[in-house]
Design a binder for these strands. Structure first.
Lengths: 146, 146
DNA sequence: TTACAAATGCAACAATGTTGCAGCCGCCAC
DNA sequence: GTGGCGGCTGCAACATTGTTGCATTTGTAA
């Protein structure tokens, strides 16, 4: 685990960029996150560090551009970011689950998505599957309440 | 044309609402649209009629609430609206195609989406499948350019 | 250690959607 | 046909999320 963390800086520099505190912090945060984080989530989690809003946006953009993270748009029209598995070139087929109750978005890595047949002339590049419903925790709470 | 309009009004009134010009216009527009329209698209299409921005938002919200239309969020984080097929109660499983080149979103009615298996405790309500790529028209133009 | 370009912080802006409220008008009853 | 009620609209102001310009700071390699 330690070797992974120290290699963060090297991995960033290998992309021809600088290993700045902001990039390291976001990279570490996404690595430990079990779900796709919004910019708001990230800002809150790193509140103590004093990074500027804009810096976080730019770090996230940079990560997406360089294939370190994936950006998806949730149903509330906010961007969410999840770390891209470094050894998953076929990460195109990514499934997500959004909980209607708590609003969190989970990555369903074990769900395989295959591209369906398209109309004549259309060419698909990536497929995104998003399931909406209730997550395990909210499902339990909901049963208690109502 | 008149018969279509009058049936629209009846359909609206059957929901316990008033058949106002704004609702009729949006309903007609979505009916003739071959793709999911954004609020911006709709505002532009109805520019001559003088409907207020907010009115259109409210009409669209009302349509979604009453099952007349579906709302989806595209990758540019804007809402898009498509008419709900009146005879498709299992319309939950809806597939869309977004063209990277022109940004338009198409409804793929013929593509069937089935919900995948979820982790323990999760319950899915609706599934949305979105394919990103190039549409037939842009695919052709792209071939010419490059 | 130094210099340079990349990265940051700040402020202002842009795009999209929401809320409050006064007044209008579609619809039903007569 | 017409009167009145309440749903609907228009306007203005606001909220949220993300972007751009520019001066300053800082990571990195020489």
């Amino acid at each position: 685990m330690r070797s992974i963390m120290t290699s963060h800086a090297e991995r960033i520099r290998a992309l021809g960029a600088r290993a700045t505190p902001a990039r390291l912090a976001v990279l570490r945060l996404l690595e430990t996150a079990e779900r796709a984080l919004s910019h708001h989530d990230i800002e809150a989690a790193l509140a103590g560090t004093g990074f500027d809003r804009v810096t976080l946006y730019r770090v996230l953009d940079w990560m997406v551009e360089n294939g370190l993270a994936h950006r998806l748009t949730d149903a509330q029209r906010v961007f969410r970011f999840s770390l891209a598995a470094s050894n998953a070139p076929a990460h195109n087929s990514h499934a997500h689950f959004r909980c209607e109750a708590c609003g969190k978005v989970f990555c369903l890595d074990q769900v395989l998505v295959q591209a369906p047949a398209l109309p004549q002339g259309f060419s698909g590049k990536s497929v995104e599957l998003c399931i909406t419903g209730q997550c395990a925790r909210c499902e339990g709470q909901d049963a208690q309440q109502s």
